[in-house]
Amino acid sequence: MTTANLLDFDLDGLAAFCEQLGEKRFRATQLFRWIHQRGASDFDQMSDLAKSLRQKLKGCAEVRALTVLTEHVSADGTIKWLFDVGDGNAVETVFIPEDDRGTLCVSSQAGCAVGCRFCSTGHQGFARNLKTSEILAQLWYAEHLLRRKFGRDERVISNVVMMGMGEPLQNYNALVPALRAMLDDHGYGLSRRRVTVSTSGVVPMMDRLALDCPVAMAVSLHAPTDELRSHLVPLNRKYPIAELLDACLRYLEHAPRDFITFEYCMLDGVNDQPEHARQLIEWVQRHRGTGVPCKFNLIPFNPFPASGLLRSSNAAVQAFAALLSAAGIVTTVRKTRGDDIDAACGQLAGDVRDRTNAATRMAQKRVIELKPVSSRAAALSTGA
């Protein structure tokens, strides 16, 4: 019999698994609590489970975490882990502590197939989707390690952002059970407002998520015109801005928050001029006659050699933010955290198999050697 990794299941999936073993649903609930609330992986620790069930589980199941390759702790308390996901691939996970919350930035893929120009993960290419267990294992490991580290019994991680490596909505079937486990009161009990999925704009999957498991939504916008956005975010050629904003409006009908967060990476001379800000204002305030309720996160770009792009000056960022704010749009400039361990916004890269052509491999090698690398808004922490 194949050994099942119980981290692959949300509560309904675990109940179905237990039913196959001849067990009732309440046993699945007990098991789910042991795994996710208490961080147990040894069935012998699960004292309120019948011995007969524990013996069954030993023969066909396990709680299999990911192997930690490295851990780095920043001077500001940010922690970055590199997890081995096999076949030479690894993914990164970042914990960002703040006074009123603890945010975990989670990866959904090894690499990324979207290929955004400013994203080092995209430059490295795509290896594979993560399994539900590999997504959840990042939270499972971090939550229970941090409880031990800080000597706490209560939850340490209050916010989860799916903003690490990969495009979450291109790994939909693994993502949704992971989200459900995060939200389940028998699991991590996170609020839908405090779990955020970030997407580059996979419109059909945004519509599905709205119905299947609505959580907070962040959209990587990065440009105010289709021509520029298609250059920076190739997915825009399939789902242009108007279609994306339509999807945002549909999503808001089901979302736990009454706004969409737009992520906007500030690129010197590319998308940071006053006319770009005015074009954005026109889009979000006039689309379909009503506009799209939103807030903007302006993200400092961390340059890497293969991108050919530079970070906007602080003056340009502040002027851009002032224009959006003057139009009544809530706007924040993302504070850099963990940059001394390459865990700041846009500094996750990880190790993935090179899926790109030979002409770019040497450039990627230089990126790794020179270190300051960039991916899509990886270590973004959101408010309540």
Rank of each mutant, 00 (worst) to 15 (best):
R117L: 15
D44W: 11
M217G: 04
M217K: 15
N297E: 00
L324K: 07
K335P: 04
W140Y: 11
M46N: 01
G291A: 13
L252E: 02
N297R: 06
L310W: 00
C248Y: 10
L380N: 06
L348K: 07
A247C: 06
D340K: 12
G291K: 09
I79S: 07
T331R: 07
A28Q: 05
A181L: 10
C116D: 14
H36T: 08
D84Y: 12
R180E: 10
T336I: 11
F262Q: 07
L280V: 14
W283E: 01
G111L: 10
F296T: 10
V94A: 01
G164A: 11
E98K: 02
T103Q: 00
W283H: 15
A327T: 08
G88K: 08
R337S: 03
T261V: 08
L380Q: 09
W81C: 02
I329V: 09
G111M: 04
T356A: 02
L245Q: 03
T332Q: 12
M266E: 07
S200E: 15
Q279S: 13
A379M: 06
T3K: 15
S374R: 02
E143G: 11
L6Q: 10
R334A: 00
P293M: 02
S41G: 01
L179G: 05
D44M: 10
L53R: 08
L244D: 03
V219Q: 04
C60E: 09
W140N: 09
C18L: 15
L310P: 00
L323Q: 15
A4N: 03
W140V: 04
